[in-house]
Design a protein around this nucleic acid. Structure first.
Lengths: 226, 226
DNA sequence: TGAAGAAGTGAATTAGGGTTCACTAACTGA
DNA sequence: TCAGTTAGTGAACCCTAATTCACTTCTTCA
């Protein structure tokens, strides 16, 4: 009697929705949020402008979903790392350097998600994921404190926040399309990125390690990929 | 022959300009950048909308100047602290906690200047001052390394960036109008603010101190106002 | 096959502020 | 006081995208 979506249609709808998301993400990772205009997204997805609104109630919702998908993946990666059974110091080092290296792999997108000026609504969604990231870092910090590897006198929540802010800030320069510094400085291949990531991680680790003997030299940790 | 501004006129013009700046700053510190609409600023300054453009070529220029004036003062404060002859560890602690405490004194304005979403042009100006702040912190770090108080194995530029990002991030939560957490948590009087500032500074100091014996306990430093 | 319900379309509408500009008021120097 | 010049005014203009909506096309099912 009534109209019922057949499976094939359902699939097509889902596919369209995904295509819109993909198109939006692609545009953002090419030119930042400015490129994520509905008309652009629509044509990149091969549909009409108005059709986007069949799938997303507003531009903000679309953008927030783009941000969420990408950010959640990073949170998941950090969670996996936080679950590792390595020494807390090493775990933290791996977590931070993995985040930095992953961000540097898709710089424009990372810049958009982390630092680029944007609408209030997107910015608020950012906070959610920063908090989620901070939570994972805090877990590592607490574990380390429990194990006696990290200083017990620091508030784990504050320490985690400082660490997250610290590596995020360190990323802004290298990520920013404004600062082509990192580009111009010749070698910014995998090695340079890894070195940067390692140095940032060193500082973050230093912030919490109890440090009986002088740990954390220039190459203190085995290079592991997360 | 030609028209020459008399001193009295010159003074009035300067006064108008200042009134515009003051009005804009007041509006921003009440309701953030959204309040800094030209028409609002104009009426708050007691002049007509169009007159604002006699003094500032564009809204962006006006906003950037508001940001610059306030930010430069903070840079100056940090510079003075960085020049102190105290132990580097204490200098760093004072620098960070002074920044935090000062920001908390005018939270809405600090939030707008540090973290609120805004136009690209304002955001770019922010970077300039973040960099200036980072430079002062880096001076402290370098001094500390030279004095042997700070770990020599960390890149001072990266360490400074992490520290700046760290305390800025720690501020976002407490400053944000969204998170009324800090408000609701009852006591957020001078004591709570000082405690927060001190804890944040602890973490920042921990990131760089060479730490022969366990320094930086919960109340490691004399409470000095900067 | 055809009536009813969904999905797709894209040009037109809307909205919110920044910016302009034709005009008036005030000021300067002779 | 007057001609020339600058400051002040604020309603109208503009620009840019997001959003809407009347219409077309596609799907479903009896």
């Amino acid at each position: 009697m009534a109209y019922r979506k057949t499976e094939r249609v359902e699939a097509r709808l889902a596919d369209n929705r995904q295509r819109i998301l993909d198109a939006a993400r692609r545009l953002v990772s090419e030119g930042g949020w400015a490129e994520a205009q509905i008309s652009h997204v629509a044509s990149a997805a091969g549909i009409a402008t108005g059709s986007v609104y069949r799938y997303f109630p507003s531009k903000a919702d679309l953008c927030v979903e783009v941000l969420s998908v990408v950010s959640q993946r990073e949170v998941d990666v950090l969670e996996a790392i936080a679950n590792s059974a390595d020494a807390p110091c090493q775990t933290l080092h791996v977590a931070v350097s993995a985040f930095v290296e992953r961000a540097m792999r898709n710089r424009r997108l990372a810049y958009a998600l982390i630092a680029e000026p944007c609408d209030r609504e997107i910015d608020e969604a950012r906070l959610v994921y920063r908090h989620a990231i901070s939570k994972q870092i805090m877990r590592i910090v607490k574990d380390g404190q429990a194990a006696g590897d990290f200083r017990a006198d620091l508030d784990p929540s504050i320490a985690a926040t400082v660490i997250v802010g610290g590596f995020m800030e360190s990323l802004i320069g290298p990520l920013s399309p404004l600062n082509a510094d990192f580009d111009r400085s010749g070698t910014h291949g995998p090695d340079a990125v890894r070195a940067l990531a390692s140095q940032i991680a060193d500082v973050c680790c230093a912030a919490v390690t109890a440090q009986p003997g002088k740990a954390a030299s220039s190459e203190p940790h085995p290079r592991r990929q997360a």
